[in-house]
Amino acid sequence: MLQMNNVSKVFRTDTVQTSALKDFSLTVDEGEFVTITGPSGCGKTTFLNIAGLLETYTSGTYLLDGVDVSQLGDFQRARLRNEKIGFIFQSFNLMPDLNLFDNVDVPLRYRGMKASERKPLIENALESVGLASRMKHLPAQLSGGQQQRVAIARALVGSPLFLLADEPTGNLDSNTALGVMELLQEINDKGTTIIMVTHDQLLAKQSQRNIHILDGRISTGDQAEALAPAAEVA
């Protein structure tokens, strides 16, 4: 479903060349819950951005649901993001001046659906995160955990192939974080693939599969164990 082979990403400025990903290969199958860990600057976010079609890569191949995305233009990439991928961010990234309903509505709008089709989907999505009663509220009127639930509803509303979550609990206190993780687990149990970047070793250990990135490459399990604490300190 998600298949990266030898993907590299090189950032160039006038004077410096930095490799964020080096010959990165990964395959994620349907229904998996994959966590990505690694120290700051290791390339986690770059991986996520490439996987989410927010960034292009320098070399290698990336097949998303069997489609080679390297040749796609902005329009098709946007379409793929819209239909196949749901994003969840550390800082939620809700539209501050749209109410919950309208926030969840955003991806469906870009799909060009009729209002009559969108409405039940949005209501269901909010229902599934337990916020159906607060549809007319603005994000600022909610707690952090509630905002992240809205973001999850927004990511799910278009029934994507998989969710990309970037530190979804990073801005939340531990109790709330637990609730969000339970929700994500629930979603995964219902069959949605989740790829989650996190700092939290505990969360990573609980997941089906943990990928540790070090210096742009996937490191073996041993190295992960050894190097993770050092990264935490940094």
Binding site: A78, R79, F87, N93
Partner: peptide
Amino acid sequence: SAEIGARQALGAHKGS
């Protein structure tokens, strides 16, 4: 910028 980025992630292409 953050909103524009989020919209892109949610499927907005540059044209829209």
